[in-house]
Amino acid sequence: MADQLTEEQIAEFKEAFSLFDKDGDGTITTKELGTVMRSLGQNPTEAELQDMINEVDADGNGTIDFPEFLTMMARKMKDTDSEEEIREAFRVFDKDGNGYISAAELRHVMTNLGEKLTDEEVDEMIREADIDGDGQVNYEEFVQMMTAK
């Protein structure tokens, strides 16, 4: 299944994987998964984290390695993001709930994920998604960005 991913997608997933893999040992533990999910405003229980890991832990060693992570991402993409997942993601970014993602809100979430971005990089990300040019990202623009192939 992971063989249907483009090189660009694999590179993006590698970057995402390293955000989860806090200690850089090449595997994601339940603790690391929990840290990232909490930084995104989720509050999973230990059991939920274990279930999430077990779902993709092909070799049964209790952690997720990069090939397992790729399989999980490929699977998720095949079920292409349901509207509800996209709306949920939008809410994570839209901290003040005004229906727009500002540069400050984007920077806040990315920083929580451990991504240190310059102001230019954040502005560039907003510009790429900002179709109507108002300097922020509304829900429609967010959907376009998330579903762009």
Rank of each mutant, 00 (worst) to 15 (best):
A16W: 10
D130H: 07
T118C: 00
G41V: 09
E12A: 15
D119P: 02
K95D: 02
D65T: 15
N138D: 12
A103K: 10
E128T: 06
G62H: 14
R38W: 13
G41M: 15
D132V: 08
V122F: 02
D132C: 05
Q50P: 04
D81K: 03
D132Q: 04
D65L: 06
E68S: 08
M52S: 06
K95T: 05
N54L: 00
M146V: 12
D23V: 12
D65V: 12
L19V: 14
N138C: 15
I28N: 10
D59C: 15
Q42R: 13
D123Y: 11
G97L: 00
A148I: 06
Q136R: 13
D94C: 10
G26D: 10
Q144G: 08
E141C: 06
G97Q: 01
E8G: 12
A58Q: 01
L33S: 09
D132H: 01
Q136F: 02
F142N: 04
N54F: 04
A104R: 09
G99W: 08
T80F: 04
Y100Q: 15
E121K: 08
D94N: 11
G97I: 05
L117P: 08
K14L: 00
V92I: 11
K149N: 11
L70W: 12
F13W: 09
A74N: 12
T111I: 12
S39Q: 15
Q50E: 11
T27Q: 03
E8H: 08
N138H: 10
E105H: 15
V92G: 09
D3L: 08
D79E: 10
E88Y: 14
T80I: 14
E128F: 09
N54V: 04
M77S: 14
G24L: 05
R87K: 07
R75E: 14
A74C: 03
I28D: 15
S39A: 10
E83C: 02
V36F: 13
T63Y: 00
T29P: 11
F93H: 12
F17Q: 15
I126W: 06
D119V: 08
G99N: 07
E68C: 09
A16Q: 07
M146E: 06
F20R: 15
G99I: 00
D59L: 14
G24D: 12
I101V: 12
F20Q: 10
A58G: 07
A16F: 06
R91S: 03
Q4P: 14
F66M: 02
I53Y: 13
T80C: 05
P67G: 03
N112L: 09
F69T: 02
E55L: 02
D94H: 09
